[in-house]
Write a protein that binds this DNA or RNA. Structure first.
Length: 489
RNA sequence: GGCCCCAUGGUCAAGCGGUUAAGACAUCGCCCUUUCACGGCGGUAACAGCAGUCCGAAUCUGCUUGGGGUCACCA
């Protein structure tokens, strides 16, 4: 059995969206699960779409995601070069195109853009038409003359109009199409660069790729590839087409439609490991039903034969949930490092930031949630007095005012503003006055935070705010409630 | 429009001829709790439709419907 070798072959056109990332991941998992090797190849045969810096993005994304490759542009494994423009300069593609022309499996085409466009117009369906093999009938002399005259040309694959072509995919099974449905695809463009379709086949063969992993959008063009392999007499690799990842409208994720890239998600405060973990589960599920998996665990358990056929909707809500799980499991030091910038963003006062970050840990899904969660510590937001009413706590606005007034001197007298001390102090207070715990805790928490929900109870918040600030907030609340009462009357 | 692919709850997803049709996210309720969260418990919610094969069909076949993909000198 030959060693498994897979590849990820992105084009340097910008940020990577999650569909691409998952293809890279599955490709990596298939190789590593089998103890094989994983390779990176850069497909930059479209000089117009090249985006400067895109190469760095690819490296960065892969490295953030923890997907490491054994061979690639900066890591020679003997099958290089790994960048198609460099391979093109070596004449690799032209050599193979020449072989096909010699064999009669490919031919030069000198048709102009205008003629090609006119084909579309007179075709049965205005917008779609295949090439009519016009240049196939050119004589040797005509071809030579055209070539010598420097007329722009491409090289096309010659697909017969009769018969059928079948190719096999590990996930989708056999797919057979009529040859007459297959266009005479262009192999070499007029600028001398190979098309993706051609370069892909040549390189996958030359580089010893055993499993071709790619998106489902290539499924319908795959039969053409087989014609190429057959023309060369090469072994056809194992194809693994992954199901599409779509948005909530069930449309394919793409940069063009403005869908989030991996980097966008990271910018939104999502952890690379969580993204990788989530995306692994789009189209595949582990046997033990355990969804949180590390990359090594995925490597161990991944079985490409169990990849799903149907497209999957990218559900950001579940990704966020998973991200929250990752945050909670993160060790404190790492968590602290990542959370601190967001905490500083919200807090400029001299407060115990570490305590604050610990409070936030179990209550956020992404780090971006932090400022909103703790902003009240910096400054009490405007709030409505009705917040003092709480059915379950059995408090009302007047009762709250009363409770706050009564508890104020007690808090003023207290010296220990640690959570535990405050807690027992207040419970004792409630008991003495014949009040429910909630009837004193709820008003205080509200007074001190101005919020319906806070990342901690009344005493925890007071501990962080300190005595002075806590008292001043409570006094302000008493004022606010008293004023409200006056207005009512 | 041609061709190709797909079809289990709102979403992800088990299931591969006999199951009370898992589980997760979301949602709802309860418990825990000084609020929220975490955690625990429970509820709502699905085999697109129609034929056929079979003692028996979510599972096999066909058709219909629905959805998606692709038809470039882009990858």
């Amino acid at each position: 059995m030959k060693m498994v070798k897979t590849r990820f072959a992105p084009s340097p056109t910008g940020r990577m969206h999650v569909g691409n990332l998952r293809t890279a991941l599955y490709s990596y998992l298939i190789a590593k699960h089998a103890g094989g090797s994983f390779m990176l190849r850069i497909e930059d045969t479209d000089q117009e779409r090249f985006v400067p810096g895109a190469l760095e993005i690819i490296y960065q994304t892969l490295s953030d995601a923890g997907i490491s490759f054994d061979e690639g542009p900066d890591k020679d494994g003997g099958a290089g070069p790994y960048v198609q423009s460099e391979r093109c300069a070596l004449g690799i593609y032209n050599k193979y195109a020449g072989q096909l022309i010699e064999q009669g499996d490919a031919y030069y085409c000198f048709c102009t853009k205008e003629r090609l466009d006119s084909l579309k117009e007179q075709g049965s369906d205005k917008e779609y038409a295949m090439y009519d093999k016009h240049c196939l009938s050119l004589s040797k002399e005509e071809i030579r003359a055209n070539l010598e005259a420097g007329i722009p040309h491409v090289v096309r694959l010659n697909v017969p109009n009769e018969g059928t072509t079948t190719f096999h995919d590990e996930i989708y099974g056999d797919i057979t199409v009529e040859n007459k449905e297959l266009d005479d695809m262009i192999l070499i463009k007029s600028d001398g660069y190979p098309t993706y379709n051609f370069a892909n086949v040549i390189d996958d063969h030359l580089m010893g790729i055993t499993h071709v992993v790619r998106g489902n959008e290539y499924l319908s063009s795959s039969p053409k590839y087989n014609r190429l392999y057959e023309a060369f007499g090469w072994d056809i690799p194992t194809y693994v087409h992954c199901p599409l990842i779509t948005d909530e409208e069930h449309h394919k994720l793409s940069k063009r439609s403005g869908h989030s890239s991996f980097e966008d998600l990271v910018d939104q405060g999502l952890l690379p490991q969580a993204i990788v973990n989530y995306v692994a589960l789009l189209g595949w599920s582990p046997e033990d039903n355990q969804e949180i998996k590390t990359l090594p665990e995925l490597v161990k358990e991944f079985d490409y034969r169990k990849i799903n056929k149907s497209p999957a909707v990218f559900d950001i809500a579940k990704l966020k949930w998973m991200n929250g799980e990752y945050i909670r499991r993160m060790d404190d030091r790492e968590y602290q490092d990542r959370a601190m910038p967001f905490i500083r963003q919200a807090i400029s006062k001299d407060l115990d930031l570490q305590k604050i970050s610990n409070m936030a840990k179990s209550r956020i899904e992404t780090f971006e949630d932090i400022p909103e969660l703790i902003g009240f510590l910096e400054k009490v937001p405007d709030y409505d007095c009705s917040m003092y009413e709480h059915k379950k706590m059995k408090t009302t606005i007047p009762l709250s005012l009363e409770a706050l007034k009564a508890v104020l001197p007690v808090l003023e007298a207290a010296d220990d503003y640690g959570n535990d001390a405050l807690y027992s102090l207040l419970l004792g207070f409630a008991k003495d006055r014949g009040l429910k715990n909630g009837q004193v805790m709820w008003p205080i928490r509200t007074a001190v935070s101005g919020k319906q929900m806070t990342p901690g109870g009344a005493t925890q918040l007071m501990e962080i705010l300190g005595k002075d600030e806590s008292l001043s907030r409570i006094r302000a609340a008493i004022e606010k409630l008293s004023e409200n009462e006056r207005k009512e009357q």
